[in-house]
């Protein structure tokens, strides 16, 4: 099975609110000092899913693609160190500040240039914009089904059996291949790259493609966004907290219970 995994590099989603700043005029996030970008937390799970499917089949190839600045190589390297076979970096000025609809177009074009894939795996969402539209977009463009928020994936005849996470439980579905599947955190811990694999990864090929290589230069660029960013800001939160005093935890608890009762909250 030929599997493509899409991985994205994002600002650390656990950046403390105090270090998170936005340039409201430019409508951009100011990178937090000393906090390095990370691989989108769901994407190693997508890589893990690909590797497990390849291992179960005993053959196949796992290619990782990332669209982003040159630093996005680190996200590719991480997947290669986990065991993926090859990487593709999509980069260039045309991709700066594009929206997720353009991102899906670029990734789909790259998958087509690779000769297609039996399965495309993505994370359930990129934890920066958190839209969860890219996997559905790739599927729509490639004309294949999309199964989102997967918790477990297994080969099932010529297709796949996928367990999905719903709001109030789980759903098992069966999809033919080729397909796009987005993977959720419930999938389980991804493997941790070992030193030997990290060294092996350094020797694996990472191709670099620009918008012209993909024949999509005319559709990229900020001016071709389908979603227009009107404003980006940090919401104001005022603190009006009343710290409940008391000499002992028991006294604090008593004071809280009384306050809550007085306010008719209990």
């Amino acid at each position: 099975m030929n599997i493509v995994v899409c991985v994205k590099q994002i600002p650390d989603p656990e950046t403390p609110a105090a270090s998170f700043k936005v340039d409201e005029a430019a409508k951009k996030v100011i990178p937090a000092q000393g906090i390095a970008p990370v691989v989108n937390p769901y994407d190693p799970q997508a890589t893990e899913a690909a590797l497990r499917l390849k291992e179960a089949a005993g053959s196949g190839k796992v290619t990782v693609i990332s669209l982003g600045p040159d630093s996005a190589r680190d996200a590719i390297k991480h997947a290669l160190a986990m065991g993926a076979d090859e990487g593709v970096l999509i980069t260039g000025p045309e991709f700066e500040d594009i929206d997720n609809f353009q991102t899906a177009k670029a990734l789909a074009a790259a998958i087509q240039k690779l000769g297609g894939a039996d399965l495309v795996l993505t994370g359930r969402a990129a934890a920066d914009w958190d839209m969860g539209v890219v996997p559905l977009g790739i599927a729509q463009i490639l004309g294949v089904p999309c199964v989102t928020v997967a918790k477990a994936i297994e080969k099932n005849g010529a297709g796949l059996k996928v367990e999905r996470v719903l709001e109030d439980g789980f759903q098992t579905v069966e999809t033919p291949l080729p397909a796009v599947v987005s993977v959720s955190n419930e999938f389980g811990e991804p493997r941790y790259p070992q030193l030997r694999q990290i060294m092996l990864a350094a020797k694996k090929t990472v191709q670099v493609w620009g918008a012209n290589d993909l024949g999509i230069a005319g559709e990229m660029g900020k001016e071709n966004r389908a979603l227009v960013l009107e404003a980006l800001y940090v919401p104001k939160v005022e603190s009006n907290v009343e710290i409940i005093e008391g000499d002992t935890p028991e006294e604090k608890a008593r004071n809280l219970a009384q306050k809550l009762r007085a306010a008719k909250l209990i």
């Binding site: 603190s239 907290v241 009343e242 935890p249 608890a253 809280l256 009384q258 209990i266």
Partner: peptide, 25 residues
């Protein structure tokens, strides 16, 4: 910071006491 009321202490002591106080009320 986001709360209306806060208790700064070990929950292991606070929560059982809170349960008792609410029962008393």
């Amino acid at each position: 910071k986001a709360a209306k009321y806060a208790i700064i202490d070990d929950y292991k002591k606070v929560v059982p006491a809170l349960i008792e106080e609410i029962k008393k009320l």
